[in-house]
Design a protein around this nucleic acid. Structure first.
Ligand code: FES
Ligand code: FES
Lengths: 146, 146
DNA sequence: ATAATAGTTGACAAAAATAGTCAGGTATGA
DNA sequence: TCATACCTGACTATTTTTGTCAACTATTAT
């Protein structure tokens, strides 16, 4: 029931990108320095986020990554789904397995009720938080310090 | 973000025990037959559940396991916590790490807000479902079939 | 042009967690 | 006293996680 570092690092990276002006790209090197995450690992993560359409890359000097949508249109669920592969606590309740019935014990599996509720709770929670929300919070904290 | 088989098997085992009369013990062999889970693995899981006080064991012939509390007093959260070790999606928000501040990036870590909300959502969901609820559902399904 | 910057890609590898297995032991009731 | 069934700890194979690395491509400033 643990989230991997991919998600926690990925969210931190996305927040770092979101905190900058919309038309200035943030390089992996900058993120690595600010967040203390290795360059090589960040490459892997941001590449994946790009292939899933969450960020766009700008190559060459002064290049880096920018969000491909507005911060208010990117949820934490988007990021976690991209980096973990999916968001489901047990494979049984993944939509790939059909609406309700594809897993080994069929539709009458009682525990499945639990896993469905849990999947919904997790999904609702992560979809309710956008990068915009987190940016706002980050600015609030920064202001409080000064 | 996956639950291990420990939890899914464990919940099925607990439900099997709960479905029987309060004073007839359910043996590992019975559960193994009914649920298709290996005896050796079930031993490991039920032992753990016993050490955490969720079930009691009855040794000797006609022995097995019984719930140590009423089904209405055992939540899915109890079972998952016992078998996974804890219920927190990232180690940062575990109570072991102090109220809010023990993880590496301190109290001002913005993503922490997300993980706290998520931990709460998961906890609320799993604590809201008891074995009694699942027994009731199992009986309802059984009745519908006949 | 070309050098410096920065993203792109795929393969590789160590370490940890998961999902079990197994052997030998102990308690209890018929 | 024997069959049943729990108890315990150690062990192992597999998979996932957490990265690293090398070689390549695109862009811009000079
Ligand atoms: S077997 Fe898939 S949820 Fe029960
Ligand atoms: S470092 Fe612990 S939540 Fe951010």
């Amino acid at each position: 029931m643990k989230l991997s570092t991919k998600s926690t690092y990925g969210l931190r990276a996305m927040l770092a990108i979101a905190m900058k002006d919309k038309n200035t790209a943030t390089s992996i090197n900058d993120i690595s320095g600010a967040e203390g995450i290795s360059v090589a690992y960040l490459e892997q993560l941001l590449n994946r986020l790009r292939r899933h359409g969450l960020v766009e890359s700008v190559r060459g000097p002064k290049g880096g990554y920018i969000l491909s949508r507005r911060p208010s249109e990117i949820t934490v669920a988007d990021i976690v789904k991209t980096l973990e592969g999916n968001i489901y606590p047990v494979h049984c309740v993944s939509p790939k397995n059909g609406p309700l019935s594809a897993c080994s014990r069929g539709a009458s599996c009682v525990p499945k009720i639990v896993w469905h509720k849990l999947a919904r709770a997790i999904s609702d929670c992560l979809e309710s938080i956008t990068l915009e929300d987190l940016c706002a919070e980050a600015i609030r904290i920064k202001r409080r310090k000064s």
